[in-house]
Structures are given as structure tokens and as C-alpha cells.
Design a protein around this nucleic acid. Structure first.
Lengths: 114, 114
DNA sequence: TCGACTACAGCACAGTACGAGGTAGTTCCC
DNA sequence: GGGAACTACCTCGTACTGTGCTGTAGTCGA
């Protein structure tokens, strides 16, 4: 029957930068912690894997939206802390606006009675 | 600066089946017409390219969500008309529910004050 | 005859999510 | 001291999907 990935899995594509920027907007965080925040705040619905989280962080850093610094931990391996740059704050605002517009448009086509 | 595709382009990934099922739910349509409907109803925001529309239709047909028949046109090439099957109607309802849940969850993480 | 539009299809390419694997430090318990 | 479990980062191969381009083919108007 040509079973593919679930609909929800496909929807997830593209929202990672928005989610990541959003949680980092709350304060300086390191990678592992970002994944936990997203998982908690989404009620367990979103659990970004390491294979998608770390590349996304690197892309955002390369784009100048995030700045990062290594710091030792008193318990466990060292951590790479990320914070929003001015550019990142701008990108977050833009991304939120684009997300809202996107939702309105999909609803207009796909959800009856709107 | 590692410029990639726009945020909105990435978001689009995964919504195609929902949009396609939705417009076909309004009545039997052929491929080219489906693209036009989506474009019109989205106010021009979404314009599915042929390279993504036709594969999506074929996938949905292979999944048993759509049934199709060839018919001659009185003007121009023949057309392949698609209609929802019972399975397709079920999938449309499911997809709408998943979409709504997905939006609520993203909003919870990414949109402040909700 | 030529261009524009309709209508379908296939291909190479690009971007992203995931799973699996690797490295390395700490903690706890037997 | 040995092993499991957890923290924490990273990279690789794979799968899926959207796009642009090309191809085929019919109709229509200048």
C-alpha cells in the first residue's frame, strides 16, 4: 500500500527553526536542553532528534541568527550555549509572522467554514 | 551566508496531500484544475508545481484515497479526473484533525501569550 | 508557421528529518 | 572495579518531498 511517513511527520518539516528560535528566545540554552524544552512545551508531541537538532543549530549559527559559546559543566560533558543575536530576534519575529500567515492560508483552503 | 530556501517554502512540505484532498472533496477535478483551485483559494500564496502535484496525486491514488479516470476534452489534451474514495474521505478528515492539532502544538511552543 | 495555453508525466537536484553510530564525561550500584 | 544509565555533542547514510526543467501532445489565434 506504499506506506510512507505519517502526515504529522511531514508537517514537521520546516518548523524546526521557528521552534528552536522560540525556546532560545526565552534565555540562553544549550542543545540538549533545547530538545528537552521543545519536548516539554509541546506536551511530548515534538521530540526533535539529535540528527535534526544539531544541524539546525549549526545552520542558524552560520546564518548569524545564533551566537554560541562552549562552557564546562560541573557534572558531565561540556555544553555549547546558544543565544539569539539581533539578527536572530528579527528572524524569530519574521518566522512567527510567516507561520501565522501560513496557517491562515492553509485553513482557508483546507478547513471548511472559514 | 548559507542562503537556503525561504521559511515558507519549507513549511509547505507536507501540506500538499491535505490541500489536494480538500479541493477534490468539493467535487471531481483533474490535475491542472486542482493546481488552479489551490492557487485561487490560497489567494496566490500556494502554487503547487507540476513536479510536486502529479507525484502527490499518484501517491494518493496508490494509497487508495483517490480514484481516477481518463476522459477526452473537447478542447485540448485528455484529462485525468480524480475523486475521493471512502478511504480518501476518511484520510481527509484525519488530515484536517492532525493539521489542527499540529497548529495548536506549534502555537503553544512558538507563539507567546497562548 | 509560430507562439501561447492546456494537460500530463518523468528526471535530476536540493533541503530536511530521522536513526544509528561514535566520542566522552559523570553518577550510582553491585 | 566493572557495568549500566544518563548527559552532551557530532556526523553519516537514508528516505521523503518540492522544484525546475524537459518532453509529449492537443488546441487556438495571429
Amino acid at each position: 500500500m506504499a506506506r510512507g511517513p505519517s502526515f504529522a511527520t511531514q508537517l514537521l518539516k520546516g518548523t524546526t527553526p521557528l521552534l528552536v528560535l522560540s525556546v532560545i528566545g526565552e534565555g540562553e540554552l544549550y542543545g540538549y536542553e533545547i530538545a528537552q524544552r521543545v519536548r516539554e512545551q509541546s506536551g511530548g508531541a515534538f521530540a526533535p532528534s539529535e540528527g535534526s537538532l544539531y544541524p539546525a543549530l549549526h545552520r542558524l549559527e552560520a546564518d548569524g541568527a545564533l551566537a554560541a559559546t562552549w562552557r564546562d559543566s560541573d557534572r558531565g560533558p561540556r555544553r555549547r550555549y546558544y543565544r539569539l543575536t539581533d539578527r536572530g530576534r528579527g528572524l524569530l519575529a519574521e518566522s512567527r509572522a510567516e507561520w501565522s500567515a501560513f496557517v491562515r492560508t492553509v485553513d482557508r483552503v483546507a478547513v471548511p467554514g472559514r
